[in-house]
Simulated assay, not measured.
Amino acid sequence: MLREASFLRLWVAATASGLATWALPFVLGFAVLERALTPGALGLVLGARTVGFLIAVPVGGVLADRYARRDVVRAAGLAAALATPVLAAAIGRSVAVMAVAAVVIGAGQGACRPAFQALTADVVDPGRRQQANAAMTLAVRVTTLAGPGGAALLATVLPVPALVCATGLLWLAAALLPPPGGPRVAAPTAQRGTYLREFAEGLREARRHAWFLAGLGALTAVIATGYSATGVLLPLMSRDTYGGEAVLAAATTAYTAGALLGAVVIARWRPRSAGWAALAGLACYGLAPLGLWLEAHPLVVVAGYAAAGAGIELFNVPWFTAIQREVEPRLLARVSSLDFLFSYGLAPVGLALIAPAAEAFGPGVVLGVCAAVCFLAPAAAALAPGARHFARAGRLEGG
């Protein structure tokens, strides 16, 4: 796929946006270390970016179905690129200006996500979309490694404002590189309604696919529990139960390595019951909090995180491919925006609730509940009509 110029341009653009997204919190962390920014101010700025993301995701979905998807990516990327130096200039001067700039950057990130997803379907023919989605998710995993690592390396020679501006250059690349999409059918101008009405049309399309609603519910539950346990309780357990940071470092590295392996495998593997296989992969996330709950040997905990990483990609790639295949093309970006809004967009809610729950009931109880949810939610989703193949009931059930 990367030998084709159009997909290569799309892949590089998505990778650039991912690098900018993952690097910014890490770079701003250096500002905290240098006392140019307080931890509370950092939380406010990152929270403002999340608000911008949540606002822009549904709007971006409507825009990407209404207009050329490359134009939506370009506008969103340019907005983020222009807001980034404003944020850099405000470091140590005005937290309010930083927060406003962060909202714009988050909005650019949010509007890009459904547009990139729909643009992949425009650029790649149906028979190769699973391979294309695997390549796109590989880019995400590479950025989670390269973003913070590259920022740490550059921090030895560049000041923090320059590093922040460098993420703006990445947004500029994300804006300018995507290729034009192929021909598609959009609603005539005369038939367009308000943004709310057009978004509601996407909701109606989503409700036509029971497997999508069930899978999205399972994904949201797993991210809100398993992902939150990883972000909040893994560092605590690593310190208090395993006596240091070694388990934290090994588990997070194993998760990323497992995700890379899972993406490579699913690029070629075509399971007969793709939906059930994907949901089984999603359920593997429960192995991460389960190992911590059992206070298992460190190698068992690390292996659980590797399996969770592989499983999430065994879910993600068939999931994205099925949405691109099953959803009406002119509504694809709007349905994709629902995916990002409820799954990854609401992840901060889980992160915010995990710590108070652990204080109230103890980490062990919370980890046990998280593991149970991660196992049970995908199992329940597998019972939905069409879940076996991630297709409308009856369409592929005989295959």
Rank of each mutant, 00 (worst) to 15 (best):
G243M: 09
A48F: 13
R239K: 10
S238H: 13
N133W: 13
C112P: 05
Q191W: 11
S228W: 12
W319E: 00
A303L: 11
G61K: 05
W293V: 08
A377T: 03
A306D: 02
V86G: 06
G286H: 04
A187V: 14
P39C: 06
G150S: 12
V62E: 04
G345C: 12
G262V: 07
A372Q: 08
T256D: 10
A146V: 15
F340M: 14
I91R: 00
G106I: 07
P178Q: 09
E198Y: 13
A134E: 04
I91H: 00
A107G: 11
A64K: 05
A280I: 13
A303E: 01
P318A: 07
E328S: 05
L341D: 10
P180H: 12
M1H: 08
L63M: 14
M136A: 08
T256M: 08
W11F: 05
V160R: 06
R74W: 15
A380Q: 04
V335K: 05
E359N: 09
F390Y: 10
L299I: 07
L287H: 12
A221V: 01
P378N: 03
P329N: 05
Y67N: 08
L163T: 14
V59N: 05
V95R: 03
G106V: 04
T321E: 02
G386V: 01
T144K: 07
L145V: 15
H297Q: 13
A387E: 04
V32G: 05
F375H: 02
R208H: 13
C165P: 07
G181F: 11
E4G: 14
G127M: 12
T50F: 11
V157M: 11
A357H: 01
A224N: 05
Q117F: 15
P25V: 01
W11R: 00
R325I: 03
V160Y: 06
R272S: 04
A56Y: 02
N133R: 09
A162W: 12
R204I: 08
A210E: 01
A322I: 01
R192A: 11
A257E: 12
T120P: 10
P188Y: 02
P298Y: 00
R395D: 15
V300C: 09
V59G: 06
V12I: 02
R128S: 15
V45L: 11
F320H: 11
R197E: 15
F116Q: 04
P329G: 05
A210D: 04
L87G: 02
A41Q: 14
C370F: 13
V59Y: 14
A31K: 01
G262T: 04
R128K: 11
G52W: 03
V27T: 00
D339K: 10
Q131E: 15
Y242H: 12
E205Q: 08
G52F: 07
Y285V: 10
P114K: 00
L19W: 03
D71T: 12
A5N: 05
L234F: 14
E4V: 06
A186C: 07
P363N: 09
T167Y: 01
S273H: 13
V164E: 01
G106E: 06
R272I: 01
V103R: 01
